[in-house]
Design a protein around this nucleic acid. Structure first.
Lengths: 212, 212
DNA sequence: GAGCAAAAGTAAGCGCTGTCAACATATGTT
DNA sequence: AACATATGTTGACAGCGCTTACTTTTGCTC
């Protein structure tokens, strides 16, 4: 979609939203790009100082981007959960896939959301959003234990294992360290299979459904 | 140790090593610090252009730091393996702990070693070092399968799960997202326990030895 | 419609960064 | 001693984050 117009009045009209949208677009499309506020302003067609009328500093814009990222991740997880039905054992892999796929599709945004380096210049409350992902996993695992389909081990132990593995896999994928010749073509399915053998009660080694 | 001397001749004598040592020190001791070459030069007591006589650019110094980090991580893993004896089942948790402890003790260095953002400005061969960690895990798991103490599943599936979980846990710890009230005081032991139930054959739920 | 305040732009500046070029100083070799 | 090389320094450039002062537009009140 072509957004550039030959002329723009002195007042942009909706610069705040334009800065956010432009930033999301650049973060998604330009890999290996070092985020700079001046570049965002340039692409939005305003001077380098204009953003400071809408955001106190660079960190405030980054915080907004991260919050949007958490919203999108939450939506993806809920959608995966809803698509897979209510059975905890059937829901974990689709949710795991939604999580990793989100990170792979939005590498810069994902790193912004979970990385302390970027969170140093953001609102500290982002940590709460990051940790709410953990709570989502605890939820599903807890229901699985109630149903008797997951092993009776402290649910947070299972959840810690789940989140660590998913976060690690996402970061490794983003950083280009999951080479097919080393980890195969379906590393998430493979690794998650190993983990599920440690989580599920009397777990069958049968192929789990691939909802890709 | 006080390194500052009141006077230094025009020729430093060993500036390359001083820059590397200074950078490692700053990365380890100053959390939340944004790495700048000028700051390293200042602390080494030379002008901002002096490093360019020893490193073509900033990325070259970062590459050297990452290589040192991989050497240190490799040493820590070998040490843990050697301390725990040769039995694969007894060696995984100590190695896992050595891995995560290394990351927690060297957060900036660890992020440099494994993060693509920093590796963009480094030598691309760093990826080989990163992936050699995976090979280490494959080794131990392979021996465990030969011994019959690990489940007969493609060893790289187990290794992918192991590395992902360890990398994820290290990154989450570095980024301050492993809150004790959420994951307990021993998240590695807990999460690794869950994973080991999916890896080990007829895994006992008994406490694994804590070599801390 | 006039007058005013506020919002939201711009231009310019400051201090920091990475990197380069030219020059200065020390070292090693013949 | 002369020369080449290594290794420092100084100064400059372009870009960054952020601030200040100014300009333009908008919204509100009378």
């Amino acid at each position: 979609m072509q957004k550039t117009t030959p002329e723009r009045s002195y007042h942009h009209g909706d610069l705040r939203r334009a800065l956010v949208d432009t930033a999301l677009e650049v973060m998604r499309e330009e890999r290996n790009w070092q985020f700079t506020l001046r570049e965002i302003a340039r692409r939005a067609g305003v001077s380098h100082a204009a953003p400071y009328k809408h955001f106190p500093d660079k960190g405030a814009l980054l915080t907004e981007l991260a919050m949007i990222g958490f919203d999108q991740l939450r939506t993806a997880l809920i959608q995966a959960q809803s698509d897979a039905g209510g059975e905890p054992r059937e829901v974990l892999l689709p949710m795991a896939r939604a999580y990793v796929d989100f990170g792979i599709a939005n590498p810069a945004l994902y790193s912004l959301m979970f990385g302390a380096e970027s969170r140093n210049q953001c609102d500290v409350h982002l940590g709460e959003n990051a940790i709410s992902v953990f709570d989502t996993v605890v939820d599903v695992l807890g229901r699985g234990q109630s149903d008797g389909v997951f092993r009776r081990r402290p649910v947070r132990d299972h959840a810690t294992a789940c989140w660590s593995l998913l976060h690690g896999m996402t970061m490794l994928a983003i950083d280009g360290l999951l080479l097919p010749e080393k980890v195969g073509l379906e590393p998430l399915k493979a690794a998650f299979g190993t983990l599920m053998e440690g989580i599920a009660s009397e777990y069958e080694a049968a192929e789990t459904p691939d909802l890709r």
